[in-house]
Design a protein around this nucleic acid. Sequence first.
DNA 1: TAGTGGTCTAGACCACCGA
DNA 2: CGGTGGTCTAGACCACTAG
Lengths: 238, 238
Amino acid sequence: MKVKYKAIYEDMRNRIESGEYQVGDLIPDEITMGRRFGCSRMTVKKAYDILVNEGYIYRRQGQGSFVLSHSLKNEKKIEIQERDLTGFSRGTQGEGQAKLLRFQLIFANEEIAQHLKIRVNDPVYDILRVRLLKDRPYVIEQTYMPPALIPGVTEEILNGSLYTYIEETLGLRIGAAQKTTWADKSNEIDQQELWLKETEPVLVIEQVAFLDNAVPFEYSISRHHYDLFRFSVYSVRH
Amino acid sequence: MKVKYKAIYEDMRNRIESGEYQVGDLIPDEITMGRRFGCSRMTVKKAYDILVNEGYIYRRQGQGSFVLSHSLKNEKKIEIQERDLTGFSRGTQGEGQAKLLRFQLIFANEEIAQHLKIRVNDPVYDILRVRLLKDRPYVIEQTYMPPALIPGVTEEILNGSLYTYIEETLGLRIGAAQKTTWADKSNEIDQQELWLKETEPVLVIEQVAFLDNAVPFEYSISRHHYDLFRFSVYSVRH
DNA sequence: TAGTGGTCTAGACCACCGA
DNA sequence: CGGTGGTCTAGACCACTAG
């Protein structure tokens, strides 16, 4: 880690997650931390501000920086709990088993083209997977990606980590994601694949993921078993 | 606005939202903007970084800062679209009509006490509302708040903006919120109040909101008509 | 090469808090 | 009062991109 503020951020995050600092604990002030890492106050502040945004700590003038309740950053999920962007950083993506139902190239339709900002009939990967946890299916994941941006995807890569492939093998940097979620009645496929009764609903999450140059590279629609998935977000006022 | 970076942030956000800068447009670089506002580069950077986090712009070394697609920050909602924390900043909260079904004081049960970090049997407001849009109900909102923290709530305040009362009348600052969402089968009350059929589901959002000293002041559970509500989140990698 | 953003410094002044 | 974080400066050097 060549960047100082990220080193400080990672260090403190690890200490909080490992339990070295407990809920309510005061963590070192900026000047102390600056001496410890050999850097200025501003650099420590930048690191701490990320921790604030992610719900690890809160800070008060005149008092200090305190560790927040662990329930705010739900890395450890009770059932399956997806945290905002966790799919990227560390966690759920690739967790548990996955069953590949379909992997082919198709022509983009209007909707896909619009989300991926490509032309209608441009080629896209069409990937359909069911993810399992303890042999129970909990989500059907439909993914579209343009091979022009993400070349060389194989079944093998899909069974491993697609995001590792994109970042490490292709050397691309993932920047942001837009997720929209709603409830829906289950359809026949949902019922079959997720072991749902007709009356049981699904939680739908539509995601568009972007590279750090704002080019969309993935459009996906996930349909989750209503009782096996919860989606959490923590957000701080600016 | 006494703080410079917030002034720059507000100014640029308004210019983007008003359409003065279109999608893909290059906005002024840090040095130019610094001269315009009479401040240093770091101050401009701080303002622009908030815009990055909120999905208004993206920035690239060597190129500049560009306006992102408006669909990423869905302030203008197609149906009713709630953006992460929009309820606070500007928007949905208090939008449309609301029907107050119940407003009383009760003793906190285990669950409420846990979320609000108070003791079991401490008093809490018990508020039940149905929100309408164009005379159609779209959400049942159950809210619990401790009067010890938020005193003086009346029916009148509930019909206006509760958040304005908390921030402006009580002088408290709202800091953050934790939301968890999932799909659920509709129950009898849902069906009656939201005009749902038995087979139609709801989107549940559980929220704990915090003051800026990390004290929880509101615990709420909203049950939304599945077809009239979508919840969106935009998030940037750190 | 010129211009951009990314990081970082070593200060400064202020607001806020607790003792 | 001393210690904390919040803001801000006027520089600096570097990485990256375009022409």
